[in-house]
């Protein structure tokens, strides 16, 4: 059900700036893999390339054994590779329920000819989708906001909704872009629990960019550290935390002995 990502010697140049420099990493199928690193390490750029926002300058990206380098996001969606956004990208003028219902890709009702001339076919599929949407709502326990306009939800609820959207299709892998950003503590616990449940019960693979170290610690194993455009080290969160190189990358070199 889930599939792994392989990034192979990927680089990205923006003019003269090398944002990602010959970076290679693996996200194992079925894992919840974290990606951390100081600002400017190239995490977001790498993430965006995997997600299909733009193509790498060189190198290749594989998903489930298939070369997906340079494919746009809507095509990756069809292959089961989904992403969420750091600032929640909900459809603000549609209800939460509609936000879920618009996701499935094989809706005959989205074809204008079918929509006009075969209403019964459309209706049948709509019933199926509604059932699935209700399942997702129950899974995430968000029934109380079902008919609210998505623009009126809180940050955390929007993030939950985004997770819900990825559950509307048979996704294999979900890229989580700073899902904790802008979410209050209580809901954050809820989010983390749901991600774990999706991973354990539904077999989703997650690739997570995060700055919130507690969340990384609770959720992710292994953790990949990027610095200066490439992978510095990979391992369990405890090893990473104790790694002097990682500390240096985040905080700079330790002060010399004897400094006041």
């Amino acid at each position: 059900m889930s599939a792994g990502i392989t990034v192979s010697s990927v680089s990205k140049l923006f003019g003269g700036i090398r944002a990602v420099n010959n970076c290679s990493l693996e996200v194992e199928a079925g894992s919840v893999t974290g990606l951390i690193g100081p600002n400017g390490a190239g995490k977001t750029t790498l993430f965006n390339m995997v997600a299909g926002a733009f193509a790498p300058t060189s190198g290749q990206i594989f998903f489930d054994g298939e070369d997906i380098t340079g494919l746009p996001s809507n095509v990756l969606f069809g292959k089961g590779l989904l992403r969420t956004f750091q600032i929640a990208h909900e459809f603000s003028n549609m209800t939460a329920f509609e936000n879920l219902m618009m996701v499935p890709g094989d809706q005959p009702g989205e074809n204008i000819i079918t929509a006009c001339f075969r209403p019964s076919l459309v209706r049948d599929r709509e019933t199926e989708i509604k059932a699935r949407a209700n399942e997702v709502i129950d899974f995430l326990s968000i029934a109380h906001i079902k008919n609210e306009l998505a623009g009126n939800l809180s940050g955390g609820q929007k993030k939950l909704l985004e997770l819900g959207r990825t559950m509307m299709v048979d996704a294999k892998t979900v890229l989580l872009d700073e899902v904790a950003a802008g979410v209050n503590r209580t809901l954050l616990q809820n989010l983390t629990d749901n991600i774990q449940r999706m991973n354990r019960e539904l077999g989703y693979t997650f690739f997570v960019i995060e700055h919130d170290m507690d969340m990384i610690a609770k959720l992710c194993d292994p953790v990949i550290v990027m610095a200066q455009g490439t992978v510095m080290t990979t391992g369990h969160i405890d090893e990473i935390r104790a790694n002097p190189k990682v500390i240096e990358a985040y905080f700079g070199s330790p002060p010399k002995q004897g400094a006041a």
Binding site: N74, E90, F91, V103
Partner: peptide, 8 residues
């Protein structure tokens, strides 16, 4: 952007 990410 979101629509594209959701496959449309």
């Amino acid at each position: 952007v979101s629509s594209s990410a959701m496959g449309k």
